[in-house]
Amino acid sequence: MNAPTLATARLTLRSWRPSDRDGLWRMQSDPRTMEFLMPVPDRTASDAVADRAEAHFARHGFGLWVVEAPGVADFAGYCGLVHVPYTEHFTPAVEIGWRFDSAYWGRGYATEAARAALDFGFEKLGLDEIVAITVPVNLRSRAVMERLGMVRDENGDFDLPSTPPSHPLRRQVLYRLRRSQARS
Rank of each mutant, 00 (worst) to 15 (best):
N138I: 00
N138V: 03
E146C: 12
T163H: 12
D153S: 10
V151L: 11
T134Q: 04
F158V: 12
V137G: 07
G121P: 08
A117V: 00
P165T: 01
R115D: 09
R115H: 13
V135C: 09
I133M: 10
S162G: 11
P136T: 05
D128Y: 00
T163Y: 11
R142E: 03
D128P: 00
V131F: 05
T134P: 01
G149W: 12
P165F: 04
V131S: 01
A143R: 15
A116T: 04
K124S: 15
V151H: 08
F158P: 10
P164E: 08
P164S: 01
E154M: 07
F122Q: 10
G121T: 09
R140Y: 01
G121E: 02
G126E: 12
I133L: 10
M145L: 11
A114Q: 01
R152K: 15
P161N: 09
D159H: 08
A132H: 08
G126R: 08
A114P: 04
D159L: 15
K124H: 14
L125W: 06
L139M: 03
D157E: 14
F120C: 01
E146G: 11
I130W: 08
D157T: 13
G149H: 15
I133F: 08
P161D: 02
L127E: 01
M150A: 04
F122Y: 14
K124Y: 03
L148H: 12
A116G: 08
E129A: 13
I130R: 05
F158Y: 06
P165D: 05
F158W: 02
L118T: 09
D128K: 02
A117I: 00
L148G: 07
E129F: 10
G149L: 14
V135H: 07
S162E: 13
N155W: 05
F122M: 10
G149Q: 14
G121D: 04
F120E: 02
P164A: 14
L160P: 01
K124M: 13
S141E: 06
I130Y: 08
S141Y: 09
A114F: 06
F122N: 03
M145T: 13
E146K: 14
G149P: 15
L160G: 00
R142T: 06
A116C: 06
V131H: 02
L160S: 10
I133E: 00
M150V: 04
T134W: 05
S162T: 15
E129C: 15
L118W: 06
V135N: 04
K124D: 15
A116W: 01
E146S: 14
M150I: 05
E146M: 12
A132T: 10
R152A: 11
S162C: 12
A143M: 11
D159A: 14
N155D: 15
N155P: 00
F120H: 12
P164N: 02
D153W: 07
G149F: 14
F120M: 06
